[in-house]
Design a protein around this nucleic acid. Structure first.
Lengths: 158, 158
DNA sequence: TCCAATGGTTGCATCATTAAACCAGATTGC
DNA sequence: GCAATCTGGTTTAATGATGCAACCATTGGA
């Protein structure tokens, strides 16, 4: 990759996200972590990736504050990898990826699972983007504005 | 990358999405396309990637039904790359990536633009996941169920 | 103490990515 | 209608990320 073109200093937030979790494994590691996987061997078994790659990815995710290592927990003096809030914040991205597959995949019958709400057990609705006054927005309804300098404005409604 | 471990036949919809658009450029190409970019040279200039890679990526995106080529449009007998519905369906994923950056980036001041609703010009709300009966769901409120065999169930509310 | 499992690291082969040079068809100038 | 040039690529060669397999170190158990 000659240098793999880091987007770390790109001013586009999408590029910046991709720089952090834009490879094929990081997202899947976070997905597993969201479902409770914590241990090296468990990630390795579930994802089937090479251990050296897993090592590198886990370290990168820790460096980026997406995972953190906890000294132990279940007795054994091994390490665990836990999601930080930043890591849990990836959840909507995973949902978006999932829903895109569900909607557009060529062979949806190969998709093994559906996302349901835990309380009722029924499929969830599609992710929705709303304006501040509550209107549902599509790709045509949005625009980009230069970030207002200085003032930070809103930072996380949730 | 030895073979990049295709997830094409994985049964996880997230893996399947990543297989289609999980590299660093495809998402950005789609982002540009959503903002109206259509021509080879335009993509190349805006993204600054090597032309051979752009060629490969565009071809892959066309093969996957995310982009389609239109014979011309502005006179010149060149080609254009247009988003299909499947391509436009990537929009929520891009929004999710963007919002993740906005919320968790270490240096949010480097982010140049904000997403606003075109009508009012105000920042949009965060993406929301709802249950069918309208409750707002977080990562803790969801579960996975095996896909009900045979019956296809819902397919796109939007 | 020895053996197995966990959690890695190391080395090597391979393939993807990259930059840069090259090339062909379309367009333009003359 | 012929050369220059622009657009849209392809080819080539270097680099380095990825994957596999072998190896190592520590933990845990018999």
């Amino acid at each position: 990759m000659v240098k793999r073109t880091s987007f770390e200093h790109d001013d586009c937030p999408i590029a910046r996200s991709l720089d952090a979790l834009g490879d094929w494994w990081s997202m899947l590691i976070i997905r597993e972590a969201l479902f409770g996987v914590r241990r090296f061997g468990e990630f390795q078994k579930k994802l089937g990736l090479a251990k050296n790659i897993l090592t590198v990815r886990l370290r990168a995710l820790v460096d980026q504050g997406i995972l953190k290592t906890a000294p132990a927990s279940d007795g054994s003096a091994y390490q665990e990898y836990l999601l930080t809030p930043k890591g849990r914040g990836v959840f909507p991205i995973l949902v978006a990826l999932r829903q895109w597959s569900e909607e557009f995949d060529e062979r949806p019958e190969e998709i093994a699972t559906i996302l349901v709400d835990k309380e009722k057990g029924r499929p969830v609705r599609k992710l929705e983007l709303h304006s501040q006054d509550g209107r549902l927005l599509g790709a045509e309804d949005i625009a980009l504005k230069p970030r207002p300098a200085g003032k930070q404005g809103k930072r996380a409604t949730a």
